[in-house]
Design a protein around this nucleic acid. Sequence first.
DNA 1: TTGTAAGCGTTATCAT
DNA 2: ATGATAACGCTTACAA
Lengths: 339, 339
Amino acid sequence: MKRKITLKHIARELEVSISTVSKALKNSEEISRDTKEKIQAFAKLYNYKPNNIAISLKNKRTKNIGVIIPDIVHYFFTTVIRGIEKYSNAKGYNVIVCVSDESFDKEVINMELLANGSIDGFIMALSAETQLKNDYNHLKEVTEQGIPLVLFDRVTDEVQCDKVIINDREGAYFAVNKLAKNGRKHIALITTENYFSVSRARAAGYRQALRDNGLEVNENLVLELPNMNVDEEAVNDFLDGQKIDAVLCVNEIFAVHSMKLAKRKGFKIPEDISFIGFTDGILSKYASPSLTAVAQHGQKMGEIAAQMLIEKVEADTDEENFRTEILEATLMERESTIN
Amino acid sequence: MKRKITLKHIARELEVSISTVSKALKNSEEISRDTKEKIQAFAKLYNYKPNNIAISLKNKRTKNIGVIIPDIVHYFFTTVIRGIEKYSNAKGYNVIVCVSDESFDKEVINMELLANGSIDGFIMALSAETQLKNDYNHLKEVTEQGIPLVLFDRVTDEVQCDKVIINDREGAYFAVNKLAKNGRKHIALITTENYFSVSRARAAGYRQALRDNGLEVNENLVLELPNMNVDEEAVNDFLDGQKIDAVLCVNEIFAVHSMKLAKRKGFKIPEDISFIGFTDGILSKYASPSLTAVAQHGQKMGEIAAQMLIEKVEADTDEENFRTEILEATLMERESTIN
DNA sequence: TTGTAAGCGTTATCAT
DNA sequence: ATGATAACGCTTACAA
């Protein structure tokens, strides 16, 4: 087993000082041609690579980015990570991924752990529980320590930092608008409980579009599901309880699952009932019929988040000018709506 | 902005030495009750937390695990990461995720980067290109340096290390066996090109099951697709070219996509043609009809991989005894096959 | 041109 | 009971 070689080893072997080796490997002008060549050859031969940890300690820069997401088995978050990875790696940063599992405590623990020197900055989406508790002290502490933070998708006004979101309100508005233009009169919304920033925004867009199309806003047409495990009975009752000819769902699981239940009831899609989901993911693409969806552009979001973060990390000033980047939501039309 | 506090700050403030502070915070017996209380109170007040990087440098242990996967936007890998995260976090380790994007070069670069002190060990699945090139020198170098490595799912015999795989051969065997018992006579296989270890194993199981059920092994019934972007024309021609009453696909994208094309052709599923996919993921669950699938138990696989790795990382001996853990593949039966 | 020494934050060994 | 010192691996200002 050939252990990693250090400057010290090289120095001892070549009978020079450590600093000479260090400088030689940086091709410093101070060092003579001869010594440099000798040292560089030796280093190459023994495949010397500087120790990242030592450099981090010295520079107080880790070149690591901490990413905290509620759930990794989730297409949207996964595309965001891809975007973060892509941009970060290109800039020489690594990505440490932590999963909060929608739990406040895990979010706090992960953050504190990473904040103690492991990372240069955070990119995160709030856990459900955090949004429910509305407690953001862990985020505030981190920013007060001067660690840059970028929130994406699930954000809060309570914390001053850079943010990237899509225009959820407009996305919902476009979707409902399209349904209305197609002549749908009884447009329902299937959503989560309303402590999610995104759900509130989407519900607002839904209502606005109804009003702008001269349709009545009927709270019976809104179904709130408590979590991602779709309660089939609740959805069935909802579909039976009233006339519904179109449904907007705040995520693709809700959409695909509800669509399946509707099909089972004998509804024809999109003739009898249209469906639109949020998150233009893999489920939407392969569903039968394929699902019209509001694209959230996760990868783009990740790239922008990483860019914002790295900009802050590498800035020498720490003036506090925070931006919120709002991406346009776009409608990806497929078979579940009429063109 | 309150910067992070260090032992030095505390020492200066309380007019004691750094080592006294260090010991006091570790509740050492050497330090007097009084001093300890004073120091601990102060540390708590200013929310002192030791710097991970300094500790890593000192201990030559980072408590980080490097995970390299071909693609993060992929349900199976994502469940594996979840398992790795779960086990690792419980043991106090963080997970650094790198994506090779199925590229040999990126895999090498990521590995070298992390190997220079950033991580205590690697968990990885080989990229497509790496398997194609059959070049594993980067893995060998890492293990020669004494860095523990665990391969999962996409493995190779060329490297001596711990491995976790599912019994792909048996998974395919079970699936085809079931189709045969259901009276299917023309069972097709849709797979990737054969340089993937998993594809080879699945194809072997497929053939074995055919033979054991007295069915002819007909190479015209095997379709190799070059990548994950299903070539619809190829699949359509394949379905038209011969009598096929059942299909085994080596992943869920192939399965769901082919199923959709078959439906479009007017086939009734499962009556006219049955489908079984590998990877019991979200697509299989929500497909219409829902897809019978060979479950790969990704989360379990991740947990085992993490356990194996951490065991090696924390072992003081470095004797070379490597295990290959083989998980049982199980068949998750749904609507796309007849019960 | 080369080397010495201090420092990044921590811990452990060895004085005092 | 407390403190000085060296060490982890590296960089850099300063000496020689």
